[in-house]
Design a protein around this nucleic acid. Structure first.
Lengths: 345, 345
DNA sequence: TTGAAAGCGCTAACAA
DNA sequence: TTGTTAGCGCTTTCAA
């Protein structure tokens, strides 16, 4: 028997009270007698009454829900950020609706629509890497739903009620290279992704500036631009060895490429870090599982999620109707020095 | 200016039509004239009208939403399963609401309530490992909301509209050990988690039975029960070496412990796989990053998610009001043989 | 092909 | 302290 859920009306009838009294009793409103509250609560318990949030939200005009849109919910980075978001949102009493775009603009558009239709009170989004056009965010902006971009942010799209949280990639890369230089390295190669992507641009600039600051000349032969994964990391390493570039350190803009390079270097008989120091970026869990453990940069994923929610919260709170100035938060990354770059002890 | 969202009523007024016509036009109902539809759609576009799903769902009594509750949304396994769920759900036209219990029963209870209050049409859940009492699922069952447990399933809790998807851990472990025996190993140690947990029990039984099937005696000295992570894996390995147990293979019930053992073995000068074969369980991404690459068992996370949704879908579909027999799906794991156990070539 | 009207379950202003 | 009433935005019979 498909038990229909009990409604406030059911409770009201059963107790010979009005729906409003029931509603107030359940909300623990101060002007309902304790006796009544007790009766109501008892019956609610008995019928295992579940308030219908849909109806409540519709009536109140508030859903208490935030929307989250990420490129994917797998891997290391995004789940971690989403965790931060979910945790902080829960702390502030918000529910969270999570969607993934699968790096596809069309999905992204669809999901934004879905979130808007679901009447979320704010949206946190990290862009698909194919997103060039931002029309789908117009509706969000025009309806004044606060929007926070995180990690993958839009350059061109700003406005009231639009903010961004990102990592200081430049700073992170600078720290890495600075550290390598201090270890005595001078021929430092850089494996980087395409430079039109903001994270790669930032990291590369950090690399360049750190070298410059130490008076070490930039050698373009040591800069390799391309996809960054285990395979390509190994391939780039192989190339450097074959060309006999005499590098004494590798800074790869992600950890997977760093590990690829590490394995290839070892296969060629190079000792890490004695002959070659290697550093990555992101502090993926596996960086402590490889040998030697990999020096890398932690991105503080949780912090990013938390900051994003707080930013949203501020826009929501300070905003009974007026806009807030767009605000950007830039998070400081943290260098984790491990064996793979420790030449000096 | 906080642009209020356009509603059907707004469209109706502007076009001098009734709300019902607008509603039908937007739903592309067949008995609305093309001309009218066009006008409606044009205006909807212009005002960037967003249907209010809350209101629609309330009215229809259907939310088209599934609830998902996992212990955590970080790590490798759960995000992967959730991905499977989200993808399949989207294919079937469902939205998905994702919650995490953080391995805490109280959170779990709260989230189940939340999902029920949100009027989800079905719930997919993987239990927190502290969950012993299942009272919070009573409401789900009594209101006939289909429930699918996956991976971490309940033994004692069954009923109409309750199903489960799990992995055949026994089978997976059996395959691993069978493979090790075929490689000529006979002194195979097993690192296992607490045996009251179903996955560990299953894997351990697979280990025992495979040995038995090959007529290899079980040596209890080679069975180590405890937490399974990198550190403990290394510790267990150290112990075996110190005690001079002369093992020629390790089967660890998870990959992290296997890697710990691997590193420790190498540190002691053992060659893997020549002197010692090592296998793990779960096919975590890092298993291909360590050296040698680790033999392990893939759990088909996506498949699990997909199966779970399909099961739910069946309960939903076949169920205008009558119950469905509980149904359990047991997925076959897949052995991935890699270098760490390849003694013969 | 369109419209009128009712109501999903809840909340909140206003009355009593 | 409790009840009456209206209405959130939508869908859906029923009638025109």
């Amino acid at each position: 028997m498909a038990n229909r859920r009990a409604s406030i009306t059911d409770l009201a009838k059963a107790l010979n009270l009005s729906t409003s009294t029931i509603s107030r009793a359940l909300a623990d409103h101060h002007d309902v007698s304790e006796a009544t509250k007790k009766r109501v609560r008892a019956l609610a318990e008995e019928l295992s009454y579940q308030p219908n949030q849909l109806a409540a939200a519709l009536r109140r005009g508030r859903t208490n829900t935030l929307g989250v849109l990420v490129p994917h919910i797998t891997g290391h980075f995004f789940p971690q950020v989403v965790n931060g978001i979910a945790t902080e949102a829960a702390r502030l009493g918000f529910n969270v609706m999570i969607c993934q775009s699968n790096e596809d603009v069309k999905q992204e558009r669809k999901n934004i629509d879905l979130l808007m239709n679901s009447q979320v009170e704010g949206i946190l989004v990290s862009l698909a890497n194919t997103t060039k056009d931002f029309g789908h965010f117009e509706a969000v902006r025009s309806q004044n739903v606060p929007l926070v971009f995180f990690d993958r942010v839009v350059e061109g799209f700003r406005g009231d009620n639009v903010s961004a949280v990102m990592l200081d990639d430049y700073q992170g890369a600078y720290q890495v290279v600075d550290h390598l230089l201090e270890q005595g390295c001078t021929r430092i190669a850089h494996f980087t992704g395409p430079l039109h992507i903001n994270i790669h641009k930032g990291r590369h600039q950090g690399y360049l500036d750190a070298l410059k600051a130490h008076g070490v000349p930039v050698d373009n032969q040591l800069i390799i631009i391309g996809e960054l994964n285990q395979k390509t990391g190994a391939a780039y390493m192989r190339k450097l060895i074959k060309q006999d570039r005499r590098v004494d350190a590798i800074f790869a803009s992600n950890d997977l490429a760093a590990v690829g390079a590490l394995q290839e270097a070892k296969a060629h008989g190079l000792r890490v870090p004695q002959d070659l120091a290697i550093a990555g970026f992101s502090n993926e869990p596996f960086t402590t599982l490889v040998e030697p453990q990999l020096t890398t940069v932690d991105q503080g994923c949780d912090t990013m999620g938390i900051s994003a929610v707080r930013l949203l919260q501020k826009m929501l709170a300070g905003n009974p109707d007026r806009q807030m100035q767009p605000r950007n938060v830039v998070l400081k990354p943290k260098l984790f020095v491990r064996e793979s770059t420790l030449k000096k002890k």
